[in-house]
Amino acid sequence: MAIRVAIVGTGFMAGVHAEAWRQTPVQVVAFVARDWDQEAGAMAAKHQARLVTRLEEVLPDADVVDICTPTHLHADFTLRAAVAGKHVICEKPLALTVEEGRRMIRACRTHGVRLLVGHVLRFFPEYRAARDLVARGEVGRPAVLRLSRCAFQPRKADNWFIDPARSGGMMLDLMVHDFDFARWVAGDVVRVFARSTRDAAPQGGLDHALAILTHRDGAISHVEGSWAFPPPTFRTRFEIAGTEGLIVFDSPSAAAIVTYLHRQNGGERVEVPLPRSPLLESPYAIQLRTFTHALTGGDDPPVTAVDALAAVQIATAAIESSQRGTAIELTPPADES
């Protein structure tokens, strides 16, 4: 029998996941909406799924709960799914705080369900291949990394992204990708220092942050995150320099297609930045296929819940560093499984 999934949320990321699930044998049986509205109805209709307003209504019919809500709701839905014995797929970042993340991990362990976190960057071929090159020794021992993710500020009707109480802010929502990647490539992070326009110039309302990570073995990482660019910019970059060489990636230089169109009606309005490069299978589909494989007795996915927790720890330390103006020392979370 096909795995049945209930998607919590009917927003942008719920739509991305629903599209990706279509490329797997998994059946989306329902969407859990905050309330009945036209957009939610349209999404459910498009994917031929039920629309409910309480998770518990669909739990009897679902094997997996896929949480695509704003971050502040991740913990509550995870705990409710776990209690009901359902596996959890949760969008990144895992949680708003390390403590909340730990609670989620503990609950899933207690109830014997999996907690798979959507650190989709690990499924982007450029990031995955670069990490594989490093793992194969192509650059030797990593010494200094530069990771950058520059986009425009999300602009939704109910713009929870820019509300730190719901998203954790740009450093948690956006930079968490690169914090995780830095750790994946160069190992645990023991010290974080960051400065952000949020704290340096709050009246400007812009989000741009520059962080310096120190890894346990001495490697250092420069991480840049931004919502200060004009739409529709989404530029990602990285370089990994080590004892034997250097890998450089720059998304504008790797653009496979560039169009030069005379604009009509001001062009398409993009609400939430998402990187795009033409691929035969989207990174989201690869991610959900890998998660499905893990849920049906296959290998563990390349990102564990503890990895996701470590990324939250680095991001929240960066936020704290920027607010306090000091470097923050970290004790990386251990895998307690």
Binding site: R141, P142, A143, V144, R191, F193, R195, L210, I212, T214, G218, A219, I220, S221, H222, A241, G242, T243
Partner: peptide
């Protein structure tokens, strides 16, 4: 600032550094 000498400098100095 954070520095390291993971990439051999060939001498007795740091070969990498990030400054804020």
């Amino acid at each position: 600032a954070q520095v390291n000498e993971i990439m051999p400098s060939g001498g007795d100095v740091e070969s990498a550094g990030l400054v804020s």
